[in-house]
Nucleic acid binder design. Sequence first.
RNA 1: GGGUGAUUGGCUCAGUUGGUUAGAGCAUCUGCCUUACAAGCAGAGGGUCAUAGGUUCGAGUCCUAUAUCACCCACCA
Length: 839
Amino acid sequence: MLDKKYNPKEVEKDRYNNWFNHHYFECGDTSKKPYSIVIPPPNVTGKLHLGHAWDTALQDIIIRFKRMQGYDCLWLPGVDHAAIATEAKVVAKLKKNNIDKYELGRDKFLNECFKWTDEHKNIIHEQWAKLGLSIDLTKERFTLDDGLAKAVKYVFVDLYNKGLIYRGEKIINWDPLAQTALSNEEVIYKDVEGAFYHLKYYLENSEEYLEVATTRPETLFGDTAVAVNPSDERYKDLIGKNVILPIVGKLIPIIGDEHADPEFGTGVVKITPAHDPNDFEVGLRHDLERIIVINPDGTMNENAGKYNGQDRFLCRENLIKDLEKAGLLIKIEKIIHSVGHSERTDVMVEPYLSLQWFVDMQHLAKQVLDNQKNKETKVNFVPTRFEKIMNNWMSDCHDWCISRQLWWGHRIPAWYKNDEVYVGINPPEGEGWHQDEDVLDTWFSSALWPFATMGWPDKTDLYARYFPTNVLVTGYDIIFFWVCRMTFQSLEFTKNRPFEYCLVHGLIRDKEGRKMSKSLGNGIDPMDMIDEYGADALRYYLTTSTAPGADLRFDEEKLKSTWNFINKLWNASRFVLMNIESIKEIKLENLNAADKWILTKLNKTIKEVTKCMEKFEFNNVNASIYTFIWNDFCDNYIEMAKFSIDENNTKSTLLYTLTCILKMLHPFMPYVTDAIYEYLPIKDAENIMISSYPVFDKKQLFKEEEEKINEIIDFIKNYRTVIKENNIASNYQVKINFKENLINKMLKLEDKIIANELDITKFKVSTKNYEAIIYYEKEITEEDLASINKRINELEQSILKRENLLNNANFVNKAPKDLVEKEKIKLQEEKEELTKLKS
RNA sequence: GGGUGAUUGGCUCAGUUGGUUAGAGCAUCUGCCUUACAAGCAGAGGGUCAUAGGUUCGAGUCCUAUAUCACCCACCA
């Protein structure tokens, strides 16, 4: 028998291993229709956070629901090597032991990374198990395994041959700490305090100068021109003349270019083509030399003269002092401006001229946009508004820089010999070739995840059966990093969308609405929450607390009240189990009104819950099922069932209803439902997770009994309110106009009923069919009178409003007829109540 | 500069294609240890749905402005 209190630790113990050992999570029953999800692979950098718990719980709910509905479900798990993030962690770890990455060498460093990966993969596995995820671990993949490597090479070579991957010299975002290129998406802009340094650029052979404002004076060593707008009256005559580059002393031309905005600053811009993307473009237009002045590690190089070797920020400081001494500094204007920082290392990103590999996005992006116009083949976002994020991004995207100067990742399949370049799956024949040292952006491999994990480019059974997948679940923050890229790669290489639906959830915030982050220290470890409240409570809370796509403010109080809900379920189950021990079979026959009432409510709930499950509206599932369990089943039905608990009809109804409740809750609360299901004396499967989901049955709707019990519940509630509001003690007497035992028993009226009227204070309780007059010796206080008058007032106003409405010809003619009818009935009832009150 | 979302009782949120008196949970107040559950039961109070217009017989819901907040993208010499 169940304990008196729900104890998640007891309930969850060993249960996951049991499921796992029975192979319940594995797919492959080809007699069923397939249904598939691939997990968004978590980075092997650390532990899972609450966002992962939310994301994976949603997927588990979907997959368990579909499994119970009779689908052959594949939920494919895996982890992401997370190139730069992991490399940064491993480098930091080695540094603690005074080991340098470069001294260690590529092979040994990669060994360290694999070791790191194994350790963290184990942690992730344990955490997935604690969350109760029904992933098929026999299909687990890794973004750096051999299969993915094959797919990555195939895609790279193919895109190269189609001309969609190219190598070029461009300004990219350079991370001087990790010493690698970054894509635009890996750069986070932050507002920081900086300054405009106003400098004098003297005109050649002149006492006059141009005032140039810059935020990055240290780049002046790379200046190869200053630009003014050709339409700017102040300067247009100077175009073609030269200025003297401060400190350096060499002559650079004044050019006219639209890039210079006359409205901004002094209207004069220094042009540094090797260190600014706009200047780079200007440089192309005017054929300017590109001078790199900064080393990959962020120190100045030999082009910076005496500052050679100084860090870029130290150089700035020193240079400004020198400029001031030389009288070339006009002023320093403090400003707040946004500056790009590396997402992973948080250092200021350096715009940097370098030779990198790029994906030409034009054709691929257009394919996505075209496909979204086709209702049959598009990716359907839930909620739909998130489609705009993808469309916006795809219609305005730059080429994707995919090479990274790292070791941890898929090495670029390109080989060089002098000026020759060879791109291929296998190394070229012959002597003297050396492979590109760089690896690919981690998203390049994750973009292939939904199909490469199923064996593509080989024609595997897995791929044939489960691809395209049915739904992808992810947060809105990575729609463009990942969802877009999976979509264009999938369309390009499989001619299919990667998933039919994309279910988008929000971000987890703390109670104050701030993002959870390490720096704020407001992060919450999901495992701590599981320890305290259980995985079931955490899953249910996370997945049912907000509308789809909305952010979630994490509130431990709410998690606690979810525990209460489970405890309620636990105790209701306990009551049922205590009273049905003798049952031999579930027979829904000779049902009484209450039995029929709860079966009706149950079926309506099944219908509503199934509908919401199909639409991924889990918050609405909660709204429906919570009320059903707590109010209908516990507060009303169980209380009524106590009067007929010895009858087989009621025992059957109790067991049947509880079974359906457990099944509906199972996708959300796998542990506790499994634990209770084990105790049921009669069940339809060896385990609840492979039992069948409840199905709506029209035959179990009993309209007459439903209305009758609804009215009885109404009556009981009104009755209790009257007793309570009027401070009526239990020694009152009552005269009733009905013979309804259920009411008498629920209200314990038996010994209070009298046949005749009494000449003392009376209180009337009535609904359509039931009326009771309560006799109780009591002074009518002013308070009582006031409340009666208040009610009379309310009724009179309401009647007036309703009469106006019904006298309005427009309403009567245009509104639906049943609505008008209802209004009429309501009006009648109110009038009756008013007359009764006034008497 | 472009875009998205939010604004509903003290707090956190629901609210389907417009249609009875706008719903929950938590918190508050009152009374109960009634043998499934006091982490519970039985009741109660509390909202001019951000503001101003408009469409409509009827608006929390649709339209147009405005305000405040949050987020995303781009730019920032």
